[in-house]
Amino acid sequence: MAANRRMLVLRAVVEDYIRSQEPVGSGAVARDHKLGVSSATVRNDMAALEDEGYLVQPHTSAGRVPTQKGYRYFVDRLARMVPLSGAQRKAIDTFLSGSVSLDDALQRAARLLAQITGQVAVVASPSLAKSRLRRLELIGISGRALLVVVITDNGRVAQHTLSLHQDQDLGEDLLAKFSESLNKECRGMTLSKASERLETQSEQVHEAGSRRLLEGLAQVLEGMADEEESSGLYMAGRSQLTRRQTLTVAELAPLLDALEEQVVLMRLMSAQSELSRTHGGVSVAIGSETRTPGLLHASIVTSGYGHATGTDQWHEGTNGQGDGPIAFVGSIGPTHMDYTVTMSAVRAVAAYLTSFLTSGEGEDG
């Protein structure tokens, strides 16, 4: 019973500290949270929580503040995940439904998430490595070069110029025939799988020109699949961090530097989005858990989107298992962020983007 009460005291301290950014005293907890015990009992509980590493007392006469361990326990066990209200979902739907393309939807999603949380929002465009081929077009641009245009199932369009050998004479009719055959053979495959299929086909073709074309196309698709780090990253809300009076210069400067390291952020948040599949749709990394020096005083909340199997992702607010997320949406802020609001908002925006892609609105973006 005492252990359960201590955890309620921990929840009260975390919630009060998030709201005020001031050390929380036992009197305020006893008065405001109706735990049915005296402030002396709460004080003893807070001392026990400090001994266990969940709280720390910055000054002898001050109240307590949560540690990273305290925030971790709060997020894992105590945070009450409150679904967004109908009005909030409608507001998100209204703001994002005006998108005219996939890129526009991702930019809007980043701005909206930053507005809701007051923190930095990061949204990645779908990775080519995890995308599936919807259509491939071959366009002759000179006597010795082709433009290879790849359109994926999530609306991304990638282009690559392929040089031809001198003995390759490919007219429009032959290119159209090739395109039709390739689309029939590879539609719905990942780019890596499509590359493997073309490589296999090239080994079975005797005509030199066709064989070289298949080999070249296989290399193009494999190269596109390897461009994991080049996915677009949309970011909003950095200026809001600089206006936070609760962040010291020592905390803010490395955080801003970390935001400039986009490749590091991509890897970190992509890995976290994979974890979100088994963590209720969101994954939270706090302080040193990010393994990123610039984020020692920050937390990231991440969710994957796309390729989910749920039938009503937007209204349920969860991501299905499917083939795993194809990209991520996340929020970065101080460790004393409002986790409940941030987790709900990240999950809702991710679910909307999944709906946007699966409904086909993102096509040809």
Rank of each mutant, 00 (worst) to 15 (best):
E172C: 03
D173S: 05
L174N: 04
L174E: 11
L175G: 10
L175E: 10
L175S: 15
A176F: 01
A176P: 05
A176R: 11
K177T: 12
K177Q: 12
F178C: 10
S179M: 06
S179P: 09
E180C: 05
S181H: 10
S181G: 15
S181Y: 09
S181A: 12
L182K: 00
N183R: 03
K184E: 09
K184W: 08
E185K: 15
C186S: 05
C186N: 11
C186D: 03
R187G: 10
R187K: 12
G188S: 08
G188K: 01
M189F: 11
M189L: 14
T190W: 01
L191W: 07
S192A: 09
S192W: 06
K193H: 14
K193F: 06
A194Q: 06
A194D: 14
A194E: 08
A194G: 15
A194P: 15
S195Y: 01
S195V: 03
E196D: 05
E196A: 04
E196I: 00
R197T: 13
R197E: 06
L198G: 05
L198Y: 09
E199T: 09
T200L: 01
Q201K: 14
Q201A: 15
Q201P: 01
S202G: 12
S202W: 06
S202C: 00
Q204T: 13
H206F: 02
E207G: 07
A208P: 14
A208C: 00
G209V: 07
R211W: 00
R211C: 00
R211D: 00
R212Q: 11
L214C: 05
E215P: 00
G216P: 08
G216L: 05
G216T: 09
A218S: 15
A218P: 03
Q219A: 01
L221I: 06
E222I: 09
E222R: 14
G223V: 03
G223C: 07
M224F: 14
A225I: 03
D226A: 05
D226I: 01
D226T: 01
E227H: 07
E227Y: 04
E227C: 01
E228P: 07
E228Q: 10
E228C: 12
E229N: 14
E229H: 08
S230C: 09
S230Q: 15
S230D: 13
S230K: 12
S230V: 07
S231W: 02
S231K: 10
S231G: 11
G232A: 11
G232F: 08
G232I: 08
L233W: 07
Y234W: 05
Y234F: 13
M235D: 04
A236C: 13
G237N: 04
G237T: 11
S239Y: 08
S239I: 06
Q240L: 13
Q240A: 10
L241W: 12
L241R: 10
L241Y: 10
L241C: 08
